[in-house]
Simulated scan of single mutants.
Amino acid sequence: MFIDPIGTGFSRSLPQDDKDTKQSEKANFGEAEKPKETEFWEVERDLKALGEFIGRFLSSHQRWLSPIFIAGESYGGFRVARLARKLQQEFGVGLCGAIVISPALEFSLLAGSDYNLTAWATLIPSFAASAAHHKRVQWAAEQGNLQAHIAAAEQFARTTLIPLLAMGDTMTPDQRQIAYEQMAGLIGLPVELVERLAGRIGIEVFARELLRDQQRIVGLYDASITAIDPFPGRVNYEGSDPTLDGLDRLFTGAINSHLRDTLGVETDLSYHLLNLETFKAWKFELKGEFKQGFLGSVDDLRVGMALNPYMQVYIAHGLFDLVTPYFASKHLADMMKLNPQIRPNLTVKHFLCGHMFYTWDESRCLWLAQMKAFYHNATA
């Protein structure tokens, strides 16, 4: 069962009375009004709606005793990690497994600052993999081993970059220069740029600068994909992301064809592949969670795994994904301090691709084989 949360896909909130029905009719005739779905566009209400739907579906189809798995991608991965606890603790839904695809698990790792240091480090291995793919590093020239190059980037991120950022001005200029040169060699950017930005390289900078000499931009969601930079002379990149805006028309056409032609869905509703109204109206309210202003899901995942020591968890990423870098989840998994009894229940895998790694034939086939083994083990 594929669930589109309210405000996405065909999912809408139903009118509850005559007043709502009349407002809905007005909206259909073009009279602007605030979407009623906005009450669902915050974290806890969104999770509650998903939990309610899952419970009702299990009841109406008599599937409460069936093996139950949940899966989610990107922000849906955040949802799955939270639901791993909430479904079991609040809705009584026992889970065999949770599949977390290209997730944003902790929002503190999505943006670095002068004071939030770890986020900068979690990007480095994805930068290194992407630079190697485009033959912008010495590794590619020597036809070396990609995994060895990525492993070197992971080691640099943990043992060199984090101390460099943490020590600030207390590190000697010579030590800083050595680190900058090592970083430039790993991620394929000029050492002068790395030095000017003091080792803090954001995804927009990397995407713009890696192939600037070719007047091309790399995709944020899949840095193996490139597009022409329409404004190469401007300071900031002002074009579109080739892996978001460039692919929107393809996925919109595919899902509409599948739902309407193959499955025979008849509706005048528009399918919201990406709903900007939801994006702009979404509220990240902490509601008792005091984590320096950032929401996270790893605590809930840890509790869910402790509540159910049989539940299996599979986290998957693409190596070329800059938006939700794979090393962030690998770092978090290493920080979860799972009990030795349940640590084998957590699997973290990476594929040679981007955010939607299943769009690559090789990665999709490999993932399918791994999922078959995962379902088998989780239900054994």
Rank of each mutant, 00 (worst) to 15 (best):
residue 4 D to G: 02
residue 6 I to P: 03
residue 7 G to Y: 00
residue 22 K to F: 15
residue 26 K to P: 05
residue 26 K to M: 11
residue 35 P to Y: 04
residue 37 E to Q: 04
residue 46 D to N: 11
residue 61 H to E: 10
residue 68 I to K: 12
residue 69 F to W: 07
residue 73 E to F: 03
residue 73 E to L: 12
residue 82 R to W: 08
residue 84 A to W: 00
residue 88 Q to A: 06
residue 88 Q to P: 07
residue 92 G to W: 03
residue 101 I to S: 11
residue 101 I to Q: 05
residue 103 P to L: 03
residue 104 A to C: 10
residue 111 A to E: 15
residue 114 D to C: 12
residue 119 A to L: 05
residue 124 I to R: 04
residue 125 P to M: 02
residue 129 A to M: 01
residue 136 R to E: 11
residue 140 A to L: 09
residue 141 A to V: 14
residue 144 G to Q: 05
residue 154 E to I: 11
residue 157 A to E: 00
residue 160 T to Y: 01
residue 163 P to A: 07
residue 172 T to R: 05
residue 174 D to H: 12
residue 175 Q to I: 06
residue 177 Q to F: 07
residue 183 M to W: 04
residue 189 L to H: 02
residue 191 V to P: 00
residue 192 E to K: 12
residue 193 L to D: 05
residue 194 V to T: 01
residue 200 R to H: 09
residue 204 E to N: 15
residue 206 F to Q: 05
residue 206 F to G: 00
residue 209 E to D: 09
residue 215 Q to L: 06
residue 218 V to R: 00
residue 223 A to F: 02
residue 225 I to V: 15
residue 226 T to Y: 01
residue 229 D to N: 08
residue 233 G to A: 13
residue 235 V to Y: 15
residue 238 E to T: 13
residue 245 D to I: 05
residue 252 T to W: 02
residue 259 L to F: 08
residue 260 R to A: 05
residue 260 R to C: 03
residue 271 Y to R: 04
residue 277 E to W: 08
residue 290 F to H: 13
residue 290 F to N: 15
residue 291 K to N: 15
residue 294 F to K: 00
residue 295 L to W: 06
residue 299 D to R: 09
residue 307 L to Y: 10
residue 317 H to K: 08
residue 322 L to R: 00
residue 324 T to D: 02
residue 342 I to M: 05
residue 346 L to I: 03
residue 347 T to A: 11
residue 363 S to Q: 09
residue 364 R to N: 09
residue 365 C to F: 15
residue 369 A to R: 14
residue 372 K to E: 14
